[in-house]
Simulated scan of single mutants.
Amino acid sequence: MALAEESVPARYLRMPHVEKGMAVGLFGGSFNPPHAGHALVAETAIRKLRLDQLWWMVTPGNPLKDRGALAPLAERIAMSEKRVSDPRIRVTAFEMRYRIRYTADTIRLVKSRHPGVFFVWIMGADSLRDFHRWERWREIAESVPIAVFDRPGATLSFLSSTMARAFSHARIAETEAARLARLSPPAWTFIHGPRSSLSSTALREAARR
């Protein structure tokens, strides 16, 4: 077991328990650090998408981001737990155990381990802008429904992004969000507000001053 993994409590290296028929949100990120904006997205997702659970997946590292400024995984898990108040939100870092780097592999794994569970990918509109740079992004969109949540300065991403244009035919109205998790992919929606102006990047920069 690698040193980084040894410092993470074993319960976080396992996938949360789910039952067949559940609707589960997959909310992944570096959470470096986690903040109230992340919690707002998670809580809004549970309500708008009618989820039974949401997995707050703290990743070992994002291939598209600088890992030099990344806080230790155990530290980001502990900080994430402090942001969570709804018992349906489960903080996990199972991607570390399986040495997963890419979202497409995460989705493939959770679907193979949990047949009969309805998974939906959750992300911010700022991530939607660069979604086409993700490894096997089309495979992701064709594997699970996707809920995109509004972020300040990124509201128009759902119109201008490569993903939004490529899968425009699969977008459903926000008013239909409650049934998204149980739709066959590709299927996605854009959730407007409430929005938080907080960002992990800004918080890290402020901490350095």
Rank of each mutant, 00 (worst) to 15 (best):
residue 181 A to P: 14
residue 207 A to W: 08
residue 195 R to P: 00
residue 33 P to V: 11
residue 52 D to M: 07
residue 199 S to W: 04
residue 194 P to Q: 08
residue 68 G to E: 12
residue 26 L to P: 02
residue 46 I to F: 01
residue 156 L to Q: 14
residue 68 G to R: 13
residue 157 S to I: 00
residue 100 I to K: 10
residue 86 D to A: 12
residue 62 N to H: 15
residue 6 E to P: 01
residue 141 A to S: 05
residue 98 Y to K: 12
residue 199 S to P: 09
residue 37 G to V: 01
residue 124 G to P: 03
residue 109 L to H: 05
residue 139 E to Y: 10
residue 171 R to I: 06
residue 115 P to E: 07
residue 73 L to W: 00
residue 135 E to G: 00
residue 173 A to Y: 06
residue 32 N to L: 04
residue 46 I to M: 13
residue 61 G to K: 13
residue 97 R to G: 12
residue 7 S to I: 05
residue 41 V to H: 01
residue 186 P to H: 13
residue 174 E to D: 14
residue 124 G to W: 03
residue 184 S to R: 14
residue 80 S to L: 06
residue 55 W to M: 07
residue 1 M to D: 05
residue 53 Q to L: 14
residue 25 G to Y: 05
residue 43 E to Y: 04
residue 194 P to E: 09
residue 206 A to S: 12
residue 195 R to A: 14
residue 185 P to T: 09
residue 43 E to C: 11
residue 117 V to E: 02
residue 137 W to E: 04
residue 109 L to S: 11
residue 187 A to L: 11
residue 63 P to F: 12
residue 115 P to L: 07
residue 73 L to N: 10
residue 71 A to I: 04
residue 85 S to M: 11
residue 101 R to Y: 04
residue 154 A to C: 14
residue 89 I to N: 06
residue 128 L to E: 10
residue 76 R to W: 09
residue 84 V to F: 11
residue 133 R to C: 09
residue 206 A to Q: 13
residue 71 A to V: 07
residue 144 V to N: 02
residue 203 L to R: 07
residue 63 P to K: 13
residue 184 S to A: 15
residue 27 F to A: 02
residue 157 S to A: 13
residue 180 L to S: 08
residue 183 L to I: 00
residue 176 E to Q: 15
residue 202 A to M: 07
residue 205 E to D: 13
residue 6 E to C: 03
residue 27 F to I: 03
residue 62 N to S: 13
residue 128 L to S: 09
residue 25 G to E: 02
residue 148 V to H: 03
residue 39 A to Y: 00
residue 111 K to T: 01
residue 109 L to E: 08
residue 49 L to Q: 05
residue 98 Y to T: 04
residue 135 E to W: 14
residue 47 R to H: 09
residue 130 D to F: 11
residue 204 R to A: 12
residue 96 M to Y: 04
residue 136 R to M: 07
residue 37 G to N: 03
residue 84 V to T: 09
residue 145 P to H: 02
residue 132 H to I: 00
residue 56 W to V: 01
residue 137 W to H: 11
residue 140 I to Q: 02
residue 29 G to T: 06
residue 58 V to E: 07
residue 180 L to K: 06
residue 196 S to M: 05
residue 115 P to W: 07
residue 85 S to Q: 15
residue 125 A to I: 04
residue 22 M to H: 01
residue 126 D to N: 05
residue 139 E to C: 04
residue 23 A to D: 01
residue 51 L to N: 07
residue 10 A to C: 04
residue 134 W to R: 03
residue 187 A to G: 12
residue 209 R to C: 08
residue 203 L to K: 06
residue 116 G to V: 08
residue 7 S to A: 15
residue 198 L to Q: 12
residue 97 R to T: 09
residue 42 A to R: 02
residue 83 R to V: 06
residue 197 S to G: 14
residue 17 H to K: 15
residue 199 S to K: 12
residue 4 A to R: 09
residue 3 L to K: 08
residue 106 T to R: 02
residue 207 A to R: 15
residue 146 I to T: 11
residue 15 M to V: 02
residue 2 A to F: 06
residue 16 P to T: 02
residue 32 N to D: 15
residue 124 G to V: 04
residue 67 R to H: 06
residue 115 P to K: 07
